[in-house]
Simulated scan of single mutants.
Amino acid sequence: MTTPHGLDQARDLDAEPLHSYDVFPAYQSASWELSDIPWDDFRPDLVRPEYVAFAMGAVMGESNSIAAQHGFLNEFVDDYDFSAFVCLWGYQELQHHLAFKKWLRLAGTDVGYEQINAMRAPYPPGTTPSATLATNIISEIATNHMYKCVSRVAEEPVIAKIMRRASGDEARHAREFIHYTARRLVGFPHELASVLETFYIYLADPNGRYQHPVSRFKSDLPELEGHVTIDEVFRYFGEVDDGSEWDRVTARLFATLAELTGRPITRLRDIRRALADVPATPGAAS
């Protein structure tokens, strides 16, 4: 089940239009506070350089929620419900940023404001609003599995706890981005090609393995030259994963496309076949 209501509700034009009304109490029941993290259990003797680099990369990656909210609210200016969800999503992403930042301070280091502020600029819109949503489905699913995988090997208990909390949030975020993509495609079915293209580009790129979409947009910012970025988070993910967790990521992405399209999609060739059967997105680059 993709959401508490499945995708039937997303595609039902007569269903409750304010899906965020249902998301809000669900998120409240699953939410956590910074005070829920056992900060007193922090073990400085178990802090390793790779954990510090990971936390710095997580701070940088999660700080993108501000830029993403800006972009979402502008691109979906005619969609109050999705905008309301974005506000709920952004709060939780900011909490991840602050939790990792607090852990860094316990470890005796921090991320400079100049680097965080460099992430503030909004992203360019996707080829279609549905493509923007698809990019975020990929981001949330990859990050959910990344935190889950790395939390299993992190020996310092506090950072492991933060990762587990964040992982659960990312899984819930992915479900709702899938919901809103399915709903968007009901009104704009011609945007399906852009969703398939977005998934295909990510899954087919050999350099995309253990890479977050954020790094493709903001990896070359001059303020970040020589500084740890979100790439460090996924580099460590690739180092500790035996391949099985990444296999789960790709399986979930293929399953999500199958759910969104109603087609059996389990491999790249299935995406190519689906693309051949759907009209190209009007105005998309050829």
Rank of each mutant, 00 (worst) to 15 (best):
V195F: 14
S167V: 01
L98H: 05
I37V: 14
V59I: 04
L106A: 04
T266K: 11
A193T: 09
I137A: 14
G57R: 02
H227S: 14
A26I: 04
R105E: 05
E259T: 15
T135C: 08
D8C: 02
H145Q: 09
P17S: 11
Q211Y: 05
P213G: 05
H173T: 02
G61V: 02
S167N: 00
K101A: 12
G90C: 15
A284I: 11
D242W: 04
L257E: 04
F237N: 01
R11T: 15
R269W: 06
V249H: 03
T3V: 11
I37L: 08
F177G: 10
G243K: 12
P17V: 07
S35F: 04
P157F: 10
E33L: 13
F76G: 07
A67H: 02
G6M: 09
S83H: 02
V77Q: 07
K218I: 05
G90F: 01
R184S: 13
T127M: 06
V52E: 04
Q9H: 07
F217I: 08
L268P: 09
C149M: 12
S35M: 07
Y200R: 14
P279I: 06
S151Y: 06
E259L: 12
G168W: 03
S130P: 08
V233M: 14
W246G: 11
L257M: 14
H70D: 10
V47G: 08
G112E: 08
N207E: 12
A134D: 03
R48M: 13
H19K: 07
A182S: 07
P206G: 09
H96M: 06
S151F: 11
H190Q: 13
V153C: 03
I201M: 10
G71D: 14
A134P: 02
E50H: 13
W103M: 00
L221Q: 03
D8S: 10
L73M: 15
E50Q: 06
R263F: 11
I178V: 13
G126M: 01
M119E: 14
S194Q: 05
E176T: 07
L106H: 10
T135L: 09
T109H: 01
E33V: 03
P44K: 06
F42K: 00
A58D: 04
P44S: 11
S286W: 09
V214G: 13
V23N: 02
I159C: 00
V158S: 00
H227F: 03
A99Q: 15
W103Y: 01
E16C: 11
G226K: 04
T2C: 11
